[in-house]
């Protein structure tokens, strides 16, 4: 397992938040411009970015469901660029989905006042955390794009995941991911395995079928 890099994780989360947040139509007291609701959604987005093979499979499902050729092309491109190998950041299965504590990474973002975490409390316990995306976050994401092209992959990938998520709620996405067989079969606490061979085969099959049509 490669060494962790908190800054890289921070860049990834930054892009998820900037891309996945709903714009706030009314001015917020904090000055935040967007909001991403729920930690589950954050984890769901993060899962697809960290596991390109699972994202490719979801793209194939979308292709099958919609017939939109670009999903198939995108899935094929992901596999061709060996992303599942190179970009993969394995996650542990916990309860009903992939999970990793993001506190440290979020702290990096919070300390730079890029995001603020707020909770909807019912009584004393916080039921759900929302993430307020500050104006500086948008500026930083745009600046990274200009100054550090090597990191543009994170922005592009966050955008693709956002598109794939298609406005589905965090729990809907989590359930969707959970349905994916290998994911489901992973023991609690186990590393979620790669499904690259299966997805590659499926790409070839679908391409062959579309080619023959």
């Amino acid at each position: 397992m490669p060494a962790r890099s908190p800054y890289r994780d921070a860049v990834r989360l930054l892009h998820i938040l900037v891309t996945g947040a709903e714009p706030l139509t009314l001015p917020h007291v904090s000055g935040a411009l967007g909001i991403l609701r729920g930690e589950v959604k954050l984890h769901a987005y993060d899962f697809w970015i960290r596991n390109p093979d699972y994202l490719a499979e979801e793209l194939l499902d979308l292709y099958v469901a919609t017939g939109a050729r670009r999903y198939l092309d995108q899935a094929e491109a992901i596999l061709a660029s060996e992303e599942p190998d190179i970009r993969r950041l394995p996650m542990i299965r916990f309860r009903f989905g992939a999970y990793e504590r993001l506190d440290d990474t979020l702290a990096l973002l919070k300390s730079r006042d890029l995001v603020r975490v707020t909770g909807n409390k019912s009584g004393v316990r916080v039921d759900e955390w929302d993430f307020l995306v500050m104006p500086r976050a948008y500026d930083l994401a745009a600046g990274i794009e200009v100054d550090f092209p090597v990191l543009s992959w994170y922005r592009e990938r966050a955008a693709l995941v956002h598109e794939v998520a298609g406005g589905r709620s965090g729990s809907a996405l989590k359930n969707r991911q959970y349905q994916q067989a290998d994911y489901a079969e992973t023991e609690l606490g186990g590393v979620i395995p790669s499904i690259t061979p299966r997805v590659s085969a499926r790409v070839r099959e679908l391409k062959g079928r579309s080619g023959s049509v």
């Binding site: 800054y7 860049v11 090597v150 990191l151």
Partner: peptide
């Protein structure tokens, strides 16, 4: 990635 991200932060 880390080098670039480190530079960012």
């Amino acid at each position: 990635d880390s080098a670039a991200a480190g530079a960012v932060f």
